[in-house]
Amino acid sequence: MIFHFREQFPQLNVYWEKYLPHMQRMEVPAKTALLKEGQVSQNYILIETGCVRAYFDKDGVDKTVQFFFENSGLSSFDSFVNELPSLFTIETIEPSVVYLLSRTHVLELMDELSHEPSFVQIILGISAARHKRYNDELVSFIRDTPEERYLRLLTQRPHIVKRVQQHYIASYLGVSSVHLSRIKSKLARGREHF
């Protein structure tokens, strides 16, 4: 939130400066759980560097829901807002630098920002863009084959394919690593014929 907001909305910098001292900076290795499934989310997570995934456990198998990269923020939203057990684990998948801002300070910040005339439009725009992406992914998961989902990932979010390990991508696409390898081989063979 704060990092990309500072760049996109410099008129709000006075607020970011005020809350930076309340943020806990953490340098963490890969596979560090920032929130565990079943815990109540107490912090908003801001990613300075690195990659984070949200996933849940289904009968001992990880099901990746989403990936997050530099200059983005996340929480288990329902858990964070309504103080309910999180449905997801949030975990780093590469060495990362993250900042945690407590729920108390986030609520104070939101209250202060709500008095800024442009803030509601900013939040609505960001929420709409994220909601559209999640809806597109949901529809794709229902409508498209795994191969079509992988091609969509390659064209629309190639940074994921470049940075994220194959078994996490397979989990995100809802296939096994073996199945993803077959899809990649088939696509490679198809390119050879052109």
Rank of each mutant, 00 (worst) to 15 (best):
Q166A: 10
F88W: 03
L113M: 15
G125D: 11
F141L: 01
R149E: 01
R103I: 05
P95M: 07
S140L: 02
I126V: 15
S102H: 14
L187R: 05
P158E: 07
Q66V: 00
I160F: 11
L87F: 13
L107E: 15
Q166G: 04
S102Y: 09
R152V: 00
Y15V: 12
E116V: 11
A54W: 00
E83T: 12
F194T: 09
F88T: 00
G50L: 05
E137N: 13
K184P: 02
L35N: 01
S41I: 01
V178P: 04
I183E: 02
S114T: 03
Y99W: 15
V65E: 02
Q42L: 09
D78Q: 12
R143V: 09
N43Q: 05
F141W: 02
V52I: 14
S140N: 04
I47C: 06
I126F: 08
H105W: 13
K36A: 14
H115C: 05
E7A: 14
Q121Y: 11
W16M: 09
S176C: 02
P10T: 12
N13T: 15
T104Q: 15
V40A: 04
L101Q: 01
K162N: 13
H179Q: 06
L107V: 14
P10C: 12
Y172W: 03
G190A: 14
Y168D: 02
Y19P: 04
I142R: 03
S76C: 09
P95D: 09
H115D: 15
Y19K: 08
Q156A: 11
L109E: 04
S140M: 01
D62N: 07
E94F: 05
I126P: 04
A54C: 07
D144W: 07
R191G: 01
S79C: 09
H167S: 05
G60F: 09
F68Q: 02
E48S: 12
V61I: 14
L107W: 12
V120F: 10
S177F: 00
E192N: 06
L187S: 01
L124G: 07
H179P: 05
I123A: 12
R182E: 04
S176N: 03
V139F: 03
N82A: 08
L138I: 03
H4Y: 15
S181Y: 06
H4A: 08
L151Q: 14
N13C: 08
S177N: 09
L124E: 10
L46N: 13
A170T: 10
K162M: 13
H105V: 06
L20Y: 13
G73W: 04
R152N: 10
G190N: 15
F3I: 14
V139Q: 01
V178N: 13
Q166N: 11
L153Q: 04
F3P: 03
A33P: 01
H131N: 08
L100A: 07
V106P: 00
A33L: 06
F141A: 12
E27D: 14
L100C: 12
E116T: 06
S102W: 11
R163K: 14
M110A: 15
R130W: 11
D62P: 02
K36V: 08
G190Y: 08
Y15P: 11
Q24R: 15
M26V: 01
Q165D: 09
A128E: 11
L113A: 09
M23D: 03
Q156Y: 02
V81G: 00
K186S: 12
I160H: 07
P117L: 07
V61N: 04
N135G: 02
N135T: 10
R130V: 12
S96I: 05
L107T: 13
M110S: 13
S176V: 03
E70R: 13
P10Y: 12
L35A: 04
